[in-house]
């Protein structure tokens, strides 16, 4: 796969997944990773922003509903000045599934004016399910704008009651909440 302005989608288990990608000066990549229901995987992806002004817009979603094991490791390396990376990961875990996400943003010495944001959010739907997100920042340059955030949430009972009080059955209300949670990532693929 070569870096391009096109929007790329990789469905894990269906499409080949590259191990390392390089973006040259001014190149951009819009990539979405999807781990569908029923897919167990252990994948690592490393993306290098090698040329000045390269930009990456990366998102991923996983939905584990039974006994899947998902482990995703993403490393984004800012090797040149003035590069921009945005990352958004969202996972829904239920049943006895286990999902782990490691995300490292590395900013090399000299990669000034780097902008890097990373978000990883999980929705945990059953007591037997497990999820963990480990975001990391390693910054060796000055004058950069970097942030990361990780949350684990549960379905909001207030939302659920509100929807049910309007006649939406409980199962459908839950499904709508899950869909809404994943929408920011899944909408990129349509």
């Amino acid at each position: 796969m070569t870096a391009s302005k096109d929007k790329e989608v990789i469905v894990v288990g269906r499409d080949p997944m590259p191990a390392v990608l390089h973006l040259g000066a001014g190149e951009s990549l819009h990539l979405t990773l999807i781990v569908p229901e029923g897919t167990s995987c252990e994948k690592a992806l490393e993306i290098h922003l090698d040329g000045p002004g390269a930009s990456l817009d990366l998102a991923g979603a996983w939905r584990c509903t039974s006994s899947e094991r998902v482990r995703l490791q993403v490393i984004v390396r800012h090797n040149a000045p003035g590069c921009h990376s945005e990352q958004l990961f969202k996972g829904v875990v239920s049943g006895s599934a286990k999902a782990e996400f490691d995300g490292l943003v590395y900013v090399a010495p000299g990669a000034m004016k780097t902008v890097a944001h990373q978000q990883a959010h999980s929705l945990l739907l059953s007591e037997g399910a497990f999820c963990e997100a480990r975001p990391q920042l390693e910054i060796y340059a000055d004058d950069v704008e970097c942030s990361h955030g990780a949350t684990t949430g549960y379905l909001n009972p207030e939302e659920l009651f509100y929807m049910r009080s309007r006649g939406i059955p409980e199962a459908e209300a839950r499904a709508m909440q899950v869909e809404a949670f994943l929408a920011p990532v899944l909408n990129r693929t349509v």
């Binding site: 939302e159 009651f161 939406i168 459908e172 709508m176 809404a180």
Partner: peptide
């Protein structure tokens, strides 16, 4: 029908889809 004292926010669900689901059910 209960009109809530504090109506609940449902991020990611549009009014149209919300009402479609409610009327449909």
């Amino acid at each position: 029908f209960l009109s809530f004292q504090y109506p609940v926010e449902i991020p990611g669900v549009s009014i149209t889809n919300f009402m479609k689901a409610a009327i449909g059910a």
